[in-house]
Computed example of a mutant assay.
Amino acid sequence: MAELRLHGPEITLESPWLIEGFPGVGLVGKIATDHLIEHLEMRYYASVHCEGLPMVGVYRGDDRTVRPPVRLYVSEAHDLLALQCDTPVAANAVETVAACLTSWIVDQNATPIYLSGLPTERDESRPELYGIATGEAGEILTTHDVPLPPEDGLVTGPTGALLNRAAQAGHDSIGLVIQCDPQFPDPEAASVLIDDAIAPLTDLEVDVQDLLERAEEIRDQRERLAQQMQQVGQDESSQAKPLRMYQ
């Protein structure tokens, strides 16, 4: 089971959305989630302690505060939760982390939106995005005209394990997959992820202009984490892959 240690008052949410930000290829999910937390001024709600998560302390520049690497933020005004993670998750811990987080998500009656990048050699065109789902959540994607996947594929890493858990149990969950740079942090892809899918699905108004204007700064800030993600195995890095690669 997940152990959540509260860092503020209890919350009261009805049927919240949960945005997942485990780091993966292009760091698209992490960048998008970080932006939502900052833009919506979400409150640090709880630290997440699942067996296998790295026991490290995270701090920010110009701030002495040390926090655990996996945290939950909340906006009661938007009926929204967001999971922020600042480190890779080891391959041998992926299943355990997915199991304990899924238990908590179900207890909250939350519908999770899992985010993943599809490594693609980028040009100047807008990256393509598509949606996948478990349970009955595919109807939500259809209602909002989120495109179908163009080919067979799979999602690896913590995000893939979370989708696997939801699929096995028949829980509602949404997966958003977007083309992204295979080597470097990709704020542009993260902005499309928010603008074309997360915002309309959750009925949020989110300005992504800041992401685009600060793209170079964000790349520099996240480059070391992106390099770490390239060095770990496929099971540790959340990303989508065409299934033909395994046939």
Rank of each mutant, 00 (worst) to 15 (best):
S75A: 11
I19S: 04
H35W: 15
L118N: 01
A77P: 04
L53E: 04
Q247N: 06
T12W: 09
P23T: 06
E51I: 10
F184P: 02
S75W: 06
Q227W: 13
S15V: 14
K241M: 10
D195G: 00
D152Q: 11
Q108V: 03
T143R: 15
L115H: 05
G61S: 11
D123T: 11
V70G: 04
E128W: 11
T202N: 06
P149E: 12
T142H: 12
A77H: 05
L193A: 02
H35Q: 11
A133G: 04
L13S: 02
I37M: 06
H144C: 07
D186W: 02
E76I: 09
R67I: 15
R165E: 10
P119S: 08
P9F: 12
H144A: 09
A91H: 08
R43N: 07
R244A: 11
E136N: 15
P200I: 01
D107A: 13
Y44R: 04
L162H: 00
D196C: 03
A90H: 11
A133M: 00
C85A: 14
E76Q: 13
T12G: 10
E213G: 03
G138W: 07
T65V: 15
I105S: 02
P23V: 08
Y73I: 06
E236Q: 14
Q221F: 09
L83D: 00
Q227Y: 13
S191A: 14
V192W: 01
P127M: 09
L101N: 02
V74N: 02
I19R: 05
Y44W: 13
A199T: 08
G52C: 07
D63Q: 12
A161D: 02
D220S: 14
R60E: 14
L83T: 04
P119L: 01
D34C: 10
G24W: 05
W17G: 00
E20T: 13
E139M: 14
H39A: 15
S47H: 07
V74C: 04
G26T: 07
A93L: 07
Y73Q: 00
E223S: 13
D210M: 12
S15I: 14
L80N: 01
L101T: 00
G157C: 09
R5V: 15
E217G: 05
D107Q: 12
W104S: 07
D86K: 08
Q239M: 08
L4P: 01
E151N: 14
T33L: 08
I132P: 00
G29S: 10
E128M: 13
V206M: 06
I218E: 01
D123S: 10
L141A: 01
W17V: 08
R165M: 09
D235C: 06
V232F: 14
N92S: 12
R64D: 14
D34P: 08
Q179N: 12
V106G: 01
Y59V: 10
G8I: 09
V208R: 00
L225W: 01
C100Y: 03
Q168I: 13
L72Y: 02
V146H: 03
Q230F: 12
R214T: 05
P147M: 07
L72K: 03
P149K: 11
T33I: 11
